[in-house]
C-alpha cells in the first residue's frame, strides 16, 4: 500500500507516494524520471546508482525510498547551477574522465562527497572513496586526475 512521504530532492521539497518495498533508486528513476542515476546491478555491488543522501554517498538500490523521509537527496541532475557546471563536472570533461559515461554520475557524486569533507585528498584517499564505483571502460586514472584538478585551490 502506498504511503506519502516528504523529502527534498535536488533542493526541491516534494511529497511522493511510495510502496513500502520501493527502493530509492526506483523512486528516483521511475517515479521522478531522474534517469541520470543508473542501475548497474541492483545489489549494491557496482555503485553506479550512487546518490547523495544528506551529503553522503549511498547505493540508492539498497535504500528504501521510505527511509529517505525528511532527508535531502542529491542526484546528478542537481549539481549544475543552471548552465554552469559544478567544478567536478567540468573537470571530468576537461581531464577526459568520461568514456561511455554510465558510471560518471556516481563517480562525480562520490567525488563531491569526498571533496566536501576533505578538499585536498591524497591519491590513496581518492581511490578508497571512489573504489565502490566500477568503471568497465577503465577510466580510473583520468577520474583520479579529474578529482585532483577539481580540488579547490589553496589561497
Amino acid at each position: 500500500m502506498k504511503k506519502p512521504i516528504e523529502l527534498t530532492v535536488n533542493d526541491e521539497l516534494m511529497q511522493v507516494e511510495v510502496e513500502p518495498q520501493t527502493t530509492l533508486l526506483e523512486l528516483i528513476r521511475d517515479g521522478l524520471h531522474l534517469t541520470g542515476t543508473k542501475e548497474g546491478c541492483g545489489m549494491g555491488d557496482c555503485g553506479t546508482c550512487i546518490v547523495l543522501v544528506d551529503g553522503k554517498p549511498v547505493n540508492s538500490c539498497l535504500m528504501l525510498a521510505a527511509d529517505a523521509r525528511g532527508r535531502s537527496v542529491t542526484t546528478i541532475e542537481g549539481l549544475a547551477k543552471g548552465a554552469e557546471l559544478h567544478p567536478l563536472q567540468q573537470s571530468f570533461i576537461d581531464q577526459g574522465a568520461v568514456q561511455c559515461g554510465f558510471c560518471s554520475p556516481a563517480m562525480i557524486l562520490s567525488a563531491k562527497a569526498l571533496l566536501d569533507e576533505d578538499p585536498h585528498p591524497t591519491e590513496e584517499t581518492i581511490k578508497r572513496a571512489l573504489s565502490g564505483v566500477l568503471c568497465r571502460c577503465g577510466s580510473y586514472k583520468k577520474i583520479i586526475a579529474a578529482v585532483q584538478a577539481a580540488s579547490p585551490k589553496e589561497s
Partner: peptide, 15 residues
Amino acid sequence: PRLDGREKVTGQAVY
C-alpha cells in the same frame, strides 16, 4: 573535449 561530455556529466545522456 568530447562532444558528449556535457550530456554525460549532467545525467542528460539517454541510454
